[in-house]
Every structure is written in C-alpha cells, then in structure tokens.
Design a protein around this nucleic acid. Structure first.
Length: 493
RNA sequence: GGCGCCGUACCCAAGUGGUAAGGGAGCAGUCUGCAAAACUGCGAUGCAGCGGUUCGAACCCGCUCGGCGCCUCCA
C-alpha cells in the first residue's frame, strides 16, 4: 500500500486513485529556453520513478508532462540569438529529450506544449471570466484571488501575509496585488494569438490547468513538480482550476526537494548550476555508466529532502555501483555447477518485501537501495560457496526487475570490457564492438587487451616484474586488472 | 514581516516513542606471485546544545545556536 506525502494536507496519506486500476498524473515540465541542469534532472527522475513504481504495482499510468514553450524568457532568448521563438523551443525540447534519455527517464505518455493548447487556454479563461472569477483590463485578463476563498490552501499562506511581504510591483490595474495574469496582451513583435481580449498569449499558470484537464479530466490523481512551484504556480493552478470547475483539481500534490551546491539551492539566478550535458561531457565514463551514476546519486536521498551535488558524491555513487556490477560480472561467468542453495528463495523474497515496503513508504529510495545492497551482500556470500548457473541467472534477474523500478542495473556490461577474459599465456585478441563501459579517452580496448595478453604471457613465464609493470601502466590509465583463480584475467575501468 | 525546512559517525544516508538500517572511505585479517574482488573483524554509550514530558526520546514539547528555502522567474 503506497503512502505519499501530500503537500495539500501536509501529511502522508495512503494513495488511492480515483479509478482503481488507473493513475492519472501530471508533472510540470520545464520552460524550454536553456539546457536542463541537475535540479531538473532530479525532478524528472523522481516522477519517473514514481511512474515506474506505480506501473510495477499494476496500475495503468497516464503520465502527462508539459513543455512551457511560450514565455517571456523564451522571447528574450530568441531576441538575444536573433532567431524565432520556435527555433529556441525546438532546440531545447530536443536537448531535453537527449539529456533525459541519457538519464534513463522514460518519455511521458503525453508531452503537450502550451502553444498546442491555446484554444483550451482561451476557453478556460473565458469560463473564469464568465463566472466572475477573472476580469479583463486593457487586453490582459487577471484571476481575482479574492473570488477563491481558500486561496493559499496548498502553500499554507494567507492573503494578508502575502501582501505584507510582497516584493512585486503593485499594478494598480489589478484589484488585488496577488491577482495573476491568465492572459497577457502581446505586442506586434511578440508571439500572440487572437482572443476575445485581442492578440495575446497565455500567462504561465493557466497552461498547466488547461493541459492537465484536457488530457486527464477535471479531477485527477497526482500533480507533481519541484518545491519551488508550490507557490505561486501550483497555488494558482488550484485557484483557477477549482474556480472554473467547482471540483477538486488534483488529489495528491507531490513535490521534490532541491539539488544544492554547497548547501545552496542550485538555480539559474545564483549561477551555481551544472547542466546535465555538462556532467556527461566532463565525465570520464561512458554515457550509460554516467547516466546510471547520476541516477544512483539522485535516488540515494529521499526525494523530499535537499540533495547536495558534488564530484565526491558522484564518485561515491560510482563506487557503490561498482560493487553491484562486480557481482553481476561474476554472476555472468560460469564457475562450475554447485549444489542449489535452499536459502536463495528466502533471500530473494526478503529483498522483494523490503524493497516494496521502502517504496510504499513515500518512495523511500535510499531504503530501497539498502535492500538491494543487502541482497548483494547475501549473494556475495552465496557465490563464495557456489551457485548453480540457473541460480545465478535468477539472482541477476531479481536485480534487473527490482532495479528497473529505479532505472538501475539494466546494463549487461558496465565498466568491464568486452573480451575481458584473457587466459594466461595463450591470449587471443578478439576485437569486438566497443563495450558499454568504454572510456571516452585514453586507451582503446584493443590496446588494453594487447597489454593484458603480454602481461599474462609474462605471468606464464613467471616474469612477475614485467607483469607488475604492465599492471602499473594500466593502473595509470585507470584500468584495474583482476586475476581470476583459473589464471585468466578480467579488467575494468 | 509572514510561511516553512534542515542539523544523525570521516563522507553520504535511513530511522520520527522502545533502546542507532545501509552504502562509501579507512584500518586489521583471510585469499592472492603481487594486486583486485569477495569474505571476516573494527568504527556514533550517542543523534547541534540546554531544559521538560515519559518506565523509556534521535524521535513529543519549550528555548537556544547554526544552515537553508519560499513569499519575484525558478525543478
């Protein structure tokens, strides 16, 4: 039974979808005027995992994640670059898909763009105007917060408190300082659409209401996003949606914490952000490996709390992951048959139960990972005694299927090279495709294999000095050699 | 000024009333030509501090200190 922390009620609640077998969720995506940073990655990942977990529980999930492709920042960026808004948004939507794809974030069921829903937005705005909850002034349309008595129920703020500290310039055309734009008039040079109030474009908040209602209905199950969206974005979505329909909007509001750098929020305005592609470009590991390291790192903290990004943290994630892939490597190698171990079934069952309990507890991924670490530890002990090949397959499958919920452990070979086994004294160099774990620079696999072969020839002749020289020189390139009991060797980066 | 979050070992990180999960790093040992991996052992009498409630508190209450977020575009 999944429990989720609901921002709306301020506590954990048992998750029960409207339709017993179906979950409808909406997550605020990004405004596409720049590359995504790690903070965007965390948000995308958290809801990717929520979606995967719901699916693994047997729900049919309809997952909508939008792109905000009309916005002041986009217009500004287009002007700076001397291009059109479409060019800007196309570029960054593509980049989004590339970056998130490398992270293993599955595409949402529907990924609508604001500009594809202008008609819905205008209709929703008209609906609010006709109900007296919004008013037009000089081609702009504002939502009147005073018309929605429970305004502030999500962010737990009262209108009076907001007024006191408001840093916004008060627009005297607005009836209340917190009234927000549903529709903004456009200058001829700006993107605009015809509307009952003249040419204009949507305000920021209205698009999410229009798109979520269009794709998921007026009331749906889960609405998510980063914590910084609680106010004003989600507060305003609730006000305008409930104001228009008179029904509840989303039932569970889920918000992820920030990625920080040196305990400070990673943000564009502070300038302390790292883009996802920057991490991939800087990384010494292959894309698959880097993507999995990032995932592991981002899931090693509960989604609700802050998460400090650093090179050291990534390195620790890599080391932790190494332990798993070392085990997978050994599981994949045949080491003779061994009598079946009766305790294996029990071990696998226990891990499943612990994993599920952790995920049920508000998506407690650190504890879920701990369950997998526990399995790793037990299986390591079992492999010391020996496991049959059928058992080794089952173990690997277990890691694969539980890992799939987190998007981990799906790769066959990680840092281990392809033709990694070079028997002592009789190596044959087989050149295969560059393995997944290949480093982007440094020695090629063939070079490594050549050196390894030379080393094992030396070992065969008991020329250990030469053998150790080769070990040293490979180590200088970050290559670690492991000699197996049968005299052959494997290597990893 | 208002609303809210956080402070657990060298690092990361669970635990939110019943006597401190897990990982990484480190140290020692087994194994190994040497390594690596794996295995075994070691590691917070204490959870920012001080009071209080309780048979019992890291977990509840109060105060203090320290760090941060939102109220403005922001995942």
């Amino acid at each position: 039974m999944l429990k989720l922390f609901n921002t709306l009620t301020g506590r954990q609640e048992v998750f029960e979808p409207i339709d017993p077998n179906k979950v409808r969720m909406y997550v605020c995506g990004v405004t596409v005027y720049d590359y995504c940073h790690i903070g965007h990655a965390r948000s995308a990942l958290v809801f990717d995992v929520l979606r995967r977990y719901l699916e693994s529980c047997g729900y049919a999930v309809i997952f909508v994640k939008n792109f905000t492709d009309v916005d002041d920042k986009i217009i500004k960026r287009a002007n700076e670059q001397g291009t059109s808004c479409d060019t800007v948004t196309d570029k960054y939507i593509q980049a989004y898909h590339e970056d998130m794809g490398k992270l293993g974030v599955k595409p949402a069921t529907v990924e609508p763009k604001a500009t594809e829903h202008i008609g819905d937005i205008i209709r929703l705005t008209e609906r609010l105007v006709s109900k007296g909850m919004a008013y037009a002034v000089d081609g702009d349309v504002y939502f009147e917060v005073a018309q929605y008595p429970v305004y502030g129920r999500l962010s737990k703020r009262r209108l009076e408190d907001l007024q006191a500290g408001a840093r916004v310039d008060v627009d005297e055309r607005k009836r209340h300082p917190m009234d927000f734009a549903l529709w903004k008039s456009s200058k001829p040079s700006e993107p605009g659409w015809e509307s009952p109030w003249g040419p204009g474009r949507p305000g920021w908040h209205i698009e999410c209401s229009a798109m979520s209602m269009q794709h998921l209905g007026e009331t749906f199950d889960i609405h998510g996003g980063g914590m910084d969206l609680i106010f004003p974005h989600h507060e305003n979505e609730i006000a305008q949606s409930c104001g228009a329909t008179g029904k509840e909007f989303a039932r569970y509001w889920v918000h992820n914490g920030f990625v920080q750098v040196n305990k400070e929020k990673m943000s564009k305005s502070i300038g302390n952000f790292f883009t996802i592609r920057e991490i991939f470009e800087k990384s010494e590991w292959s894309e698959e490996v880097t993507g999995e390291i990032l995932r592991y790192f981002l899931l090693s903290t509960h989604y609700h709390g802050p998460l400090d990004f650093s090179d050291q943290a990534l390195k620790e994630a890599k080391n932790a992951l190494n332990g798993f892939y070392d085990l997978f490597g050994r599981l994949a190698e045949s080491n003779g048959s061994a009598p079946s171990d009766q305790s294996l079934d029990q071990t696998l069952d226990r891990c499943q139960v612990a994993f599920k309990a952790a995920m049920d507890d508000d998506l407690n991924t650190p504890v879920a990972i701990a369950a997998l670490q526990g399995l790793r530890s037990v299986v390591n002990k079992l492999t010391e005694k020996g496991l049959s090949s059928e058992e080794r397959k089952r173990v690997r499958q277990e890691f694969r299927s539980l890992g799939n919920v987190l998007g981990l452990f799906q790769i066959d070979k990680w840092q281990f090279g392809g033709p990694s086994v070079v028997p002592i004294g009789q190596a044959k160099v087989t050149s295969e495709a560059l393995p997944v774990g290949a480093k982007k620079s440094g020695l090629t696999d063939t070079e490594i294999e050549d050196l390894l072969r030379e080393r094992n020839e030396a070992r065969g002749k008991k020329q250990f000095k030469r053998a150790d020289e080769i070990r040293q020189s490979l180590a200088a390139h970050g290559i670690i050699i492991e000699d197996k009991p049968d005299g052959s060797s494997r290597w990893k980066r």
